[in-house]
Nucleic acid binder design. Structure first.
Ligand SMILES: [Zn+2]
Ligand SMILES: [Zn+2]
Ligand SMILES: [Zn+2]
Ligand SMILES: [Zn+2]
Lengths: 121, 121
DNA sequence: GCAGAAATGAAAATGATTTTCATTTCTGTG
DNA sequence: CACAGAAATGAAAATCATTTTCATTTCTGC
């Protein structure tokens, strides 16, 4: 666990959810840390390998990361203003688990997001 | 539906599963078609917009495409080999609808994908 | 202190995808 | 057919996240 990895973990803790490598780098710089983008990528890759960080892909192909420890949850996102609400996901969790078991998949994870227009928009 | 889109659909039919834009372009060239890579990307994007083609991302971020017979559905994706299975989504649909109603969101849609390691990997 | 190993980051390279733009093909109208 | 405007095409350039290279700095054990 080197300096870069510690810095990346601390910013991921601060973020408390998913963020891209570029976002994390910007956040580190803004908070006064001195670190190169290369080191952010290297640290993230190493943390993913060690299963300390989860990596997945947005629809546009960019990788996003979060601490594995983060409480897992889902969002209701407004397509118009971008505001988000955290939503209750037990039914979804059950569904994802059932689907994975039915097809005998291991090391299962999932991604789910609900989009719409919020009442105030 | 222009020439490029027809060519791309025909090669997707031939492939019968997922393939990347670059692979599809190569296949088209090898089978004697004359088409530019740009047109393959354009056709795929348009077919995805029209929901004629499914797009998803490999772990390395590359987009892969396939003909999408059915209307709306979800996938179980292998993180290792990229193979996918279509899964039954009624529980998920119900959940998404309930969450949206609870928060009074309109024009609701959702994204959901389950990923893991398939039995043969 | 000192040699070798590990870490760092700037700059260059990579590779998929998108954009630009000049050219070609299509389509409708007279 | 002719001919103008619209749509389609694709080569080349641009974009952009990510990876690689490589020279420099920092760390570690002796
Ligand atoms: Zn809103
Ligand atoms: Zn979940
Ligand atoms: Zn597999
Ligand atoms: Zn659904």
């Amino acid at each position: 666990m080197n300096k870069s990895e510690l810095k990346v973990i601390s910013v991921l803790e601060r973020v408390g959810g998913f963020a891209s490598a570029q976002q994390l780098h910007q956040l580190l710089l803004r908070s006064g840390e001195s670190i190169g983008l290369t080191s952010v990528y290297r640290a993230l890759q190493s943390l993913v390998d060690d299963k300390i960080v989860d990596q997945l892909r947005k629809d546009d192909g960019e990788a996003i990361y979060r601490l594995c420890g983060e409480a897992h949850h889902h969002h209701l996102v407004c397509k118009s203003c971008g505001s988000t609400v955290e939503i209750e996901g037990s039914a979804l969790e059950k569904w994802a688990k059932a689907m994975a078991e039915e097809h005998e998949y291991r090391e299962v994870g999932h991604l789910a997001e609900v989009f719409g227009i919020c009442p105030s928009c």
